[in-house]
Design a protein around this nucleic acid. Structure first.
Lengths: 153, 153
DNA sequence: CCGGTGTAGTTGAGCGCTCAACTAAATCGC
DNA sequence: GCGATTTAGTTGAGCGCTCAACTACACCGG
């Protein structure tokens, strides 16, 4: 006999729909705010953040792809846009002739520095202000468990 | 004096990054699975689900937009694709000459019925299997709080 | 040192989305 | 009733993404 689908029970269904609406709503809101205030989508903001935290504000493309959890292709397209905006530039990698380094420009750093306070405020207003300290902790554990599950499979 | 930015403390930072990676990873995984197994993105799956639950499997475009939390524009583009795929059709609204009804076709219902078990299994594997019953409850409360916050602002 | 395999990164087509502009019909206020 | 406003839905441009195909280089085994 074929295995029957274990459908979601009403509690799970409610959780799933609430999660969908909250996580999508949150990301859409932050994306829109960042687009409006800094002229970039959230994904590009994150790339600039990672670069700003790297030694010499530069990083190999593949490392940057791993850290931002994006495909090489996605990062490559994004880098083209970021370079056209003047926020990063590319340099040859001295130790691997296949490699490229993404380097945050001064202008990119300045743009990031200008965008960061508003964005952090947004994350606070839309996420953390809605949660108790205990819930923040719960959300961290839940997120880490889900992320681990994804990496395991 | 200007108000200083309240930066995220290390706990909040960790929670935020874990949440980003989990929620994006989860949605990307489910999207890819649905694209592979049913030839549609998750957003379209949800539209078909909502239609399948509606009386006579039909719904006004704007109501459908509200229920799926999408803009009229998004739904309009999506409906065009879904209609081209033969999964929905449009009908004139009898009570409002501006209105359109989206109607789930037999073929659309069949496609949905074929896709649903695999998708539910995916939600289970990637999300609920990683969480304890208490965490499912926590996630629901957290998500509802965040969604409420978004609607309030 | 050389052929095969793996890795780094790019490219182009196609898709789903946003945003702004638009048409058309309903409804409100006097 | 009738002009002004609001609501329903569509459209097209532009953007960011995926997927698959591709180039170029590194590295491994004999």
């Amino acid at each position: 006999m074929v295995v029957m689908t274990r459908w979601l029970d009403p509690d799970e269904q409610r959780t799933w729909r609430a999660f969908l609406s909250a996580s999508r709503g949150l990301m859409e809101t932050l994306d829109r705010e960042l687009q409006r205030d800094a002229g970039m989508p959230h994904a590009y903001y994150e790339i600039l953040v990672r670069l700003s935290e790297a030694p010499d504000r530069r990083m190999r493309m593949s490392e940057l792809a791993t850290e931002t959890a994006s495909s090489r292709s996605r990062l490559s397209h994004a880098a083209a846009r970021l370079e056209a905006a003047g926020w990063i530039r590319r340099e040859e990698c001295p130790t691997d002739r296949r490699g490229q380094l993404a380097v945050l420009t001064e202008q990119g750093f300045a743009t990031l520095a200008a965008a960061a306070p508003g964005h952090v405020e947004g994350v606070r207003r839309h996420l953390f202000d809605a949660l108790s300290p205990a819930q923040v902790d719960q959300l961290r554990r839940i997120s880490e468990a889900v992320a681990d599950q994804l990496n395991a499979s």
